[in-house]
């Protein structure tokens, strides 16, 4: 499960993310954050953290340096 989710994030990085205009408000980017969180905290907790991160990645959300806890 963890691997699958990391694969999804990787696929996003090498696919759509390459060709879309830059949008990252955060550092690290959502996909980097997701990969790190999944690696550190596993599929369920890491996945939830990544989901929450994506959910705040919009014009009213936060921005700046926001590493995986």
């Amino acid at each position: 499960m963890k691997r699958v989710l990391i694969l999804v994030a990787r696929a996003w990085q090498v696919g759509p993310s390459r060709v879309l205009p830059p949008t990252c408000r955060y550092a690290p980017s959502c996909s980097e954050y997701a990969i790190e969180a999944l690696g550190k905290h596993g599929a369920i907790k890491g996945g939830w953290m990544a989901f929450k991160r994506i959910m705040r990645c919009h014009p009213w959300g936060g921005h700046g340096y926001d590493p995986v806890p």
Partner: peptide, 20 residues
């Protein structure tokens, strides 16, 4: 630059949620 954005409370980027 990120730090500056943060301290000034601005960010020109929309984030990935709107695209997703």
């Amino acid at each position: 630059i990120m730090a500056l954005y943060k301290s000034e409370g601005v960010n020109p980027l929309a984030g990935c949620l709107p695209i997703l």
